[in-house]
Computed example of a mutant assay.
Amino acid sequence: MPDERPIVSALTDAYTELARLIAPLAEEDGWRATRLPGWSVRDLIVHLLGDAQRALVALATPAPGPADRDAVTYWAGFVQTAETAQPDNRQIRVVRSLAVAHPWESLVETYTETTAAACTLAARTRPHDLISTQGHSLTTDDFLSTLVVEAAVHHLDLTDAGTRPGPPASALHLVRQTLDGLLGHPEPVGWDDVTYALTGTGRRALTGDETRKLKDDAVRFPLFS
């Protein structure tokens, strides 16, 4: 049997660690705040479940070529502007209504089962097949990279709610690659992976010294959110 593709291993690591993070939480933990303003732990798990469900649909939905996004350019549509800097209250209300409707134990179990299924399906795909998601076409491996990045960033959102440990190194490495790709070159500040992930996605503000080191690139932060 051939070795598992690195991107499939990274997705499995990211989803497995998120499931392990969530599993021991009690129902009352579900209403604790996360790094995302206005989002509780329960809200974020519902969002993550939706992402895993989207993965199942996308991996089973072939797309005609050519690809119009890759693992980096996919995120160009998620750049924060002055108009989008505030929390999307409508999105939060929709997610909250779903979060309230899900019994806690069922939500955790469904998330664990769905992410495991997504990893199994991902392992059966071919790296250069095209899939369709959110109005775009990507290769399978580029799509899997976006799933890993999103899982890693939201894992960090959950750790701010008092849960540990953080995302696996393989997932954080892909976040770094994505942020460097959006920036156009390796970041010059010397951040560790977690700090870069938090700063590059707007979870952490730039310091004055970091702004000086970034020079003209400072105004481009966050690179996606």
Rank of each mutant, 00 (worst) to 15 (best):
W39N: 01
F224K: 08
G202K: 01
R20I: 00
H185Y: 05
A23S: 09
D29S: 14
E4R: 12
G190E: 10
D68A: 01
L183R: 14
R212Y: 09
L44Y: 04
G181I: 06
A26D: 14
V79G: 03
H154V: 02
K213L: 15
S106R: 15
V194E: 15
L174W: 05
L121W: 02
P24E: 08
T211R: 15
T163L: 15
S170W: 00
D141S: 10
L121V: 14
S132M: 10
S132H: 15
L183A: 13
V8A: 10
I7V: 13
P168V: 07
V148R: 03
H155W: 09
S40K: 06
V149R: 05
V153A: 11
A55W: 06
G181L: 07
T73D: 09
A123N: 10
P87G: 02
P167Q: 07
W31L: 08
D13E: 14
D88N: 15
T16Y: 09
G65P: 03
V57C: 14
D217K: 04
L138Q: 15
P87S: 05
Y74N: 01
V175R: 09
L183G: 04
A10C: 02
V41M: 09
E83Y: 03
D193R: 14
V79S: 05
V219T: 15
D216C: 00
V79Y: 00
A151E: 08
A101F: 03
T61K: 13
T163M: 15
R164D: 10
A14L: 01
G50F: 01
L18A: 08
T178L: 01
R54E: 14
A60Y: 01
I22A: 13
A76K: 13
T120Y: 14
P6V: 00
L214I: 08
T140A: 12
L25N: 01
R176T: 12
Q86F: 04
S137G: 11
L182I: 02
H173Q: 12
A60W: 03
L59Y: 09
T140I: 09
V194P: 06
Y74K: 01
A58V: 05
L48V: 05
V189E: 07
D157N: 06
E109C: 02
T112V: 11
Q86G: 02
F78A: 04
Q134H: 13
L158S: 06
A171R: 04
D70L: 04
N89Q: 14
H128P: 00
